[in-house]
Design a protein around this nucleic acid. Sequence first.
DNA 1: GACCAGGTGAATA
DNA 2: TATTCACATGGT
Length: 289
Amino acid sequence: MLNSPFFLMIIKKEKNRLTVKGEFFSAEQILSSGQVFRFNPYKQGYLLYAGSHIAYLCQSGDETVIECSDEDYFYNYFDLNTDYRKITEKIKKYSFMQDALNAGRGIRILRQERLETLISFIISANNNIKRISNIIQKICLALGEKKEFNGIIYNAFPTLPQLSSADTGFFINAGAGYRAAYLTKTISALNNGFDLNLIADMDLSEARKSLMSLSGIGRKVCDCILLFSYYRQNVFPVDTWIEKVYNDYIECGDICRNKIADNFEKMFGNLSGYIQQYLFYYKRNKQEG
DNA sequence: GACCAGGTGAATA
DNA sequence: TATTCACATGGT
C-alpha cells in the first residue's frame, strides 16, 4: 500500500496488481485517446499490450483494477506519480476548455516505449486508428515474441532486431501501404547508429531536428513521439482533429498545421500536451456521436 | 466515385 | 521560405 501523495486518487500497488480510484483515471478514456493502439475489449474490461507487457483493466464506478505482468512498469506507464488534479486546476482557467475537461477528465499522458511509439506513429500518418491498430497487430503477431500471462497468450512488440528481419514487402503485406518504405528506412537508420536514447537529453528544437531526419517522421509524428514516449509536455501535436478545433475555437483561416502547433505551444507552454489530449478526445468523440 | 483518417516527402517557385 | 501533389488502404 502506498501513501497517495494526492487527495482524490487512491493507489494500491501489490504484486501483479494496481488499484486506482478517483476521477482522474478512466480506462475507456485513456485507451480511446489515440495514444495507444494495442488493446481490445476483454470480459468486463480491456486487455492492453505495451512493449512486452500486458495488463487487464477492469473499471467499476470510479475504481479500476489493473492485473498486469509488472506493476512497476504500469505504475510508470500510466503516469501514476503525477497529480492530475493540479494540472486540471490550471487548465480550468481557460473557459473554452470546460467541456473538453468534463468529457475527458480521466485521460492521462502515457509513458510509452520509444521504439514502439516511433514505429506506431509512422504508421499513423494519414491513417485512421482502427487501421493503425490492425497493422500493428499484424506486425506483432509475425515478429514479436510470444508471451503468456494468467493463461492469456499474446505477442510482445518486436525488438529492433526482430523488426530488422522484415523487408518492405512484409510491411506492405501487413497493410502499411506507402508507409512501408518509411519503416524499413527508419529501422535501417536505427541499426546504423541512430540512438533513440540521445533524444531524451536534447533540447526541443534539437530533438525535433534529429527525429525528423528519420523517414516518415514530420512535425506531427515527431511531436506525438516526443509527447507519448519522451514525456515532453510542451509539445502540441496537430492532426486533422486538432486543426478542426483550432478553426472552431481560435481562428478560422488557412493557417498551416505547423503554425497552429507553434501558436498552441506559445499559448499553453507546459500544459500543451495535456490540453492537446483533452481536445483531441473531446472533438473526435463528439464527431462520432 | 469522392472524401476521410492522429501526414510526409519531393518538386516547384 | 511556402505551396502543391502523390501516396496505400479500408470505411462511409
